[in-house]
């Protein structure tokens, strides 16, 4: 049966004993299962409604990381001073205020879309996801949670409890989403970048690209190969940076865009990120 759990433990008990789909903000799953007006939404499974699970509605600042509870809305993240600015910039590009008041990052992960805007920044920030079940918790890097479009490694008896963002400072961050009308645009291509410079030397370079492969693209070996360059050298080699991603940028043709356009846009975004450093 459908449930509205009043505590996390109660929710985890249901997940242990039955088969449920979790509904947080519902902004994805309501539409994926859309039926007829005035009739109940024809969900495929029993539903676990966690929107009112206030226990998971929090943002907590720790020494090493920021912890975001799974039911925290995008709007609350925008209001919180310790949520990284790069995440806020991506959230501001997600739909309009009405959606941001209910939708969650956990739902963005559960949706497992390669064009998800929140998830893109989670890749960039090396986010770790706390998956809870009645038998305990495990902490998993975001790239091990999402494995393909609509595919993830969250077990049926588990749910996302928390998202952890390591606290890092960058000299420069970049977020750009290319889409159509803002309030309903799913990214055609998007890029989040971050760099840490010291005495004009690139100490760290991070690039995450959305909607160009089956998952968000992030390649630490490419990033490492440009470490240690001076800023001028890096900028002079901007074409090389873009070329390094060539084989990873394998976009699909769909109703939103075509592959050639997406590839060109991704190269342009990589260039734009490097040039503005």
């Amino acid at each position: 049966m459908n449930k509205i759990p009043e505590s996390l433990n109660e929710a985890l008990q249901y997940l242990k004993e039955g088969t449920y789909d979790v509904l947080a903000g519902g902004t994805d799953i309501m539409l994926k299962n859309r039926g007829y007006a005035e009739a109940p939404v024809p969900f495929k499974k029993n539903m676990l409604y966690i929107f009112n699970l206030d226990e998971l509605r929090y943002i907590a600042t720790h020494d090493e990381h920021i912890a975001i509870g799974a039911v925290t809305s995008y709007a609350s993240m925008l209001r919180h001073p310790d949520v990284p600015d790069i995440l806020k910039r991506s959230i501001r590009q997600i739909a309009g205020p009405a959606l941001r008041h209910v939708a969650t990052l956990a739902g963005n992960i559960g949706n497992a879309s390669p064009s998800a805007d929140g998830v893109l920044v989670l890749y960039l920030l090396d986010a770790r996801i706390i998956l809870a079940s009645a038998d305990g918790e495990r902490e998993v890097p975001i790239e091990d949670v999402i494995t393909g479009p609509g595919k993830h490694t969250i077990r049926p008896e588990e749910m996302i409890k928390e998202i952890r963002l390591p606290r890092r400072t960058f000299s420069n961050t970049f977020f750009k989403k290319v889409g159509a009308r803002k309030a309903d645009a799913i990214s055609k291509t998007s890029l989040a970048g971050a760099a840490r410079l010291h005495d004009n030397v690139v100490e760290e370079l991070r690039i995450a690209i959305g909607a160009v492969n089956v998952t968000v693209v992030r390649d630490r070996s490419i990033e490492a190969s440009f470490k240690g360059l001076t800023l001028e050298d890096l900028k002079a080699r901007v074409d090389e940076v873009a070329a390094a991603y060539d084989s990873l940028i394998r976009p699909i043709d769909d109703q939103r865009s075509n592959a050639r356009y997406r590839k060109q846009v991704s190269f342009n975004l990589i260039e734009a990120f490097i040039r503005q450093l």
Partner: peptide, 12 residues
């Protein structure tokens, strides 16, 4: 706060 009720289930 504004929310859209066409994608909000009664449970919420």
């Amino acid at each position: 706060r504004i929310v859209d009720t066409c994608i909000l289930p009664l449970a919420s």
